[in-house]
Amino acid sequence: MSEREYRSGGLILRVSNLYVEERGRPILEDINFSVERGTTLAIVGPNGAGKTTLFRVLMNLIPYTGTVEWSGRARIGYVPQTLVSTDLPVSVEEFLGLKSISDHKECMESVGLNQGMLKESLSELSGGELQRVLLGWAIADNPDILLFDEPTSLVDIGAEEPIYERILAMKERHGTTILLISHNLHVISHYSDFLLAINRKQFYFGKTRTIPHHDLIKLMAGISEGEGD
């Protein structure tokens, strides 16, 4: 993607020569990719490949070398795999209030939850309900870009699809850009436009639909090298 395309607003994010180390050990090396506004980029790789570290870099939470360039003032929404602690007795209503979300009804409805759940404690929710609350929390202020770290890892198989349908609907309605870490082949092939495969180093970046199914499986496992377009 050229400098002119980036400046003209086609790109929302560009990452060049990214390098991250922890205690002298490289976690990510020579990562280069860009993200077009309104598209979905799936990030795949085996456990320990550096996917979550990449998200931390994008949120500027850890030191790195290289370039991470956001176009303009992109507002980032983040949905973690799960919460660090649901030990704190926080009701859903209070959780939404922590982000000063005023319209709790609309927020709950946007992720298919009913208002009756507002008084429930986060620790009492099922994995799927909690993920939906986290999603509602992240999208409530219409961020420009959403980072999803395995957003349905704790969700029952049947409950997974509706969540992605809602993410897709939101993307189409607001033009939200989505970066998604997932180990789910179906999700990646159906919902992502571009794919970034990493295993400490980057070994594929390109359009998802051009990758044959069996190659996609290998890329996700981090056992094959491919070439992007």
């Binding site: 998200f55 931390r56 949120m59 939470l61 980032i76 929404g77 983040y78 973690p80 919460l83 660090v84 602690s85 649901t86 704190l88 926080v90 959780f95 922590l98 986060l122 929390w137």
Partner: peptide, 8 residues
């Protein structure tokens, strides 16, 4: 609840 969400 979540350090990353808080930082974001």
């Amino acid at each position: 609840i979540s350090k990353e969400m808080a930082l974001s």
